[in-house]
Write a protein that binds this DNA or RNA. Structure first.
Length: 109
DNA sequence: ACATTGACTAATT
DNA sequence: TAATTAGCCAATG
């Protein structure tokens, strides 16, 4: 996994607006569609790899706005993520346990 | 090289 | 709805 891919992932996460969220799969899909070897932006796999990047280098980006396909934040940071999301007004389910992707999902441009 | 792991997903029950 | 299962694919040891 080279720096170009790592930067590509982080730059997408940085673009997620406050109060909205996106998923690992959507980011992977976006990178797959927009991979351009000529620009050094290469496709480096699927959703799990996106997760790997955030686990490794997600410290300085709004990682709590990235959730899995069912709207649940990563189990390890579940509380912190939900608190942050609630604080910025992201639509959540009634039990406050997951993001209402139906309303909150943000798609990279 | 090989086996295990994981901030995942889609289908099944 | 929620829990389980099988598939996934690069990273890691």
């Amino acid at each position: 996994m080279d720096d170009a891919y790592l930067d590509a992932v982080l730059s997408v996460v940085e673009r997620v607006p406050s109060g909205r969220a996106t998923t690992y799969g959507l980011i992977a899909e976006y990178l797959r569609d927009h991979s351009d070897p000529a620009l050094g932006v290469r496709d480096r796999g699927g959703p799990r790899q996106v997760g790997t990047v955030l686990a490794r280098a997600g410290g300085d980006v709004p990682w709590w706005r990235v959730v899995n396909a069912t709207g649940s934040p990563p189990a390890r940071h579940r509380v912190r993520a939900l608190d942050a999301l609630r604080a910025e007004g992201c639509p959540l389910t009634a039990d406050g346990a997951r993001v209402r992707l139906r309303d909150a999902v943000w798609l990279p441009d």
